[in-house]
């Protein structure tokens, strides 16, 4: 199917129809982390839990390697990934920011402060 070219914004991935289709299983797994029992089950065997939700190999690899940009490329929506990052892995948004930008956490925090000047 020929589709119109999408507008892209550098460094700002858009969670659109394509991402929602690609990432449904991944996002559904992350949505399950609204329950502590499910978070605990994930922690006890990450890969088994991923397979239970039907994640494909690329998605499972992005999970096990904590590849945040990779998780977005395989359809992860940030509000759902936030449940994995915050609720399960105990990372805050500056940790996540640092992981995606190649900065240290302190560098990332300094960048945020600098935005106020």
């Amino acid at each position: 199917m020929n589709r119109p070219q999408k507008r892209t914004i550098p460094g700002a991935p858009i969670f659109d129809s394509d991402a929602a289709r690609r990432g449904y299983a991944l996002n559904k797994m992350c949505y399950s982390f609204n329950s502590k029992a499910n978070r605990d089950e994930f922690v006890s065997d990450e890969v088994a839990y991923c397979k239970k939700f039907g994640l494909d190999e690329a998605q499972i690899k992005a999970i096990t390697t904590r590849d945040v940009l990779g998780l977005i490329r395989v359809g992860g929506g940030v509000y759902f990934l936030g449940k994995l990052a915050g609720g399960v892995l105990g990372l805050d948004m500056q940790d996540i920011g640092a992981l995606q930008t190649g900065m240290t956490k302190d560098e990332f925090k300094a960048k945020l402060v600098a935005a106020g000047h």
Binding site: G11, I72, T101, F108
Partner: peptide, 11 residues
């Protein structure tokens, strides 16, 4: 929150 431009703020 997400992407290579994470941390973007526009005062």
């Amino acid at each position: 929150l997400e992407g290579e431009r994470a941390g973007f703020i526009n005062k």
